[in-house]
Design a protein around this nucleic acid. Structure first.
Lengths: 252, 252
DNA sequence: CGACTACATTGATTCACATCAAGGTCGGGA
DNA sequence: TCCCGACCTTGATGTGAATCAATGTAGTCG
């Protein structure tokens, strides 16, 4: 059990902030990822009205913790977060990484309490979407209801991909798949698909993929030796994308 | 690639059936599991009107296949199904078992195509719930919309449990957890929590848990030797529930 | 600046589960 | 009834990743 020193006194509570961040859904660079809706502009305004933007999360600060009352889902505007669960015997399982444009917190709906914790891997700006407002709006806007069902369904299929990865694939394949996944998530934001910085530690990668740090490190070394990847601490450059895909041995 | 000989010519298409099965949601023994809604009786009638009951699925018959157009979600009325994905290199990954009262097919929403296949492990009766009707009804009935969001969220949290199990737990713990999960699902239906028949093969269990048949078999033998379980092929009797829980080492 | 701490790499050894191999058991069909 | 094929169990051996151990590197704070 670590104590999160970096966390400020008010903890994970997001205070609606008076100063504007000059962002709204209409002009947000990420809206094609976050809400790829054929929304009418007045529909966007309705959504806009319920979304709360708040002061950024610092590195290691929690957005919410396992067991917290579920109030909202969250969209990442900048930075990266990890979601994780703590098992009964105190071990940690990273269940996902969330990049800009992605939505997290949906696992809290079923029990009205968050089933996992979410903390910032680096400074992160977040859009908070109060769930009851979202529900009401969904009833009025079929396309929004549909979109949200799809988002949750996507979370399910992605979890199933991870289940398959953990159950059927070797260490090499797992790490390669994660690199490809991160690469495509950068590409989706019009950033380089072949050169990027990993926001998470080797421990987090290993934890997510069901491997130890040492194994992750060895896989990176191996990939480097094979001229598939160039690894400089957290800086990654993909040198041989087809080679990486072959190593991953999965569609992902 | 197996050919499913048991499958009848019309494949997975469910034909609405003229003869009544004397079942409706109002009197269904499973409705506390399937739709634990404080539904007004006229609300139940509205739901009733969109649900289609059809002729039972025979063992090994598919309810839907990976890639099929997504039209409906399904509730199991009797029997058991398994859901599975086929990986690029032809391996199979079992992603879940579905018992009476449980809902499957929600992974198809995100892409309008089923992300996995579902086949009957034994003769099974199914309620089909056309999704577009469900969506429309959800807009009108906030409690139904909420319920469906919760169902999907539960699927997410359960998948995350499995991810943790695969990533962090030993063969013994995995098998013990599955036995406890099945036990509690029987208990929920007011059936014996300590004596039941496994509807799935050892291969399916191993596949679901990321283990080989041999390992599953050995774990059962070990549990039997420890007087935790009595195993007679597919008949299971839990002799020492606390012992089994201790072996599982997880809350699930 | 230098020292402390968290993070990352690399090597040696161990171990849990996979793989390979051989029988055993059950259930359905001729 | 007996036979066949699918399913299950058990044993012997192999191996990929965990564990243990040591060293290297980067970022941080007094």
């Amino acid at each position: 059990m670590t104590i999160h020193l970096a966390e400020s006194g008010d903890g994970a509570v997001l205070q609606p902030c008076s100063h504007d961040y000059q962002v709204n859904c209409g002009n947000c660079r990420l809206n094609s990822i976050c809400l790829p809706l054929a929304l009418e502009s007045d529909d966007i305004q309705l959504l806009e009205d319920i979304i709360q933007r708040s002061k950024p999360l610092q590195k290691n600060q929690h957005l919410y913790r396992e067991g917290d009352d579920f109030q909202s889902v969250y969209a990442v505007r900048s930075g990266t977060l990890k979601a994780y669960k703590t098992t009964d015997d105190g071990k940690e399982q990273v269940t996902g990484f969330y990049f800009p444009g992605e939505i997290l917190g949906m696992d809290g709906i079923s029990n009205n309490a968050h089933a996992s914790s979410a903390k910032a891997l680096e400074t992160a700006a977040i859009c908070e979407i109060p769930f009851t407002s979202l529900e009401k709006l969904s009833s009025l806007m079929p396309s929004l209801q549909r979109h949200f069902f799809q988002l949750m369904s996507r979370e399910i299929t992605e979890d199933q991909q991870l289940i398959t990865l953990l159950s059927k694939n070797s260490a090499d394949e797992r790490v390669a798949s994660l690199m490809l996944s991160i690469s495509s998530r950068y590409a989706r934001r019009k950033l380089s698909a072949t050169q990027f910085r990993l926001p998470m530690s080797r421990v987090d990668i290993g934890n997510y993929l069901g491997l130890t740090v040492e194994t992750v490190s060895r896989v990176f070394s191996r990939m480097q030796k094979m001229d598939i990847l160039q690894v400089d601490n957290k800086e990654i450059r993909i040198l041989d994308l087809p080679g990486l895909q072959k190593m991953a041995n999965v569609a992902g």
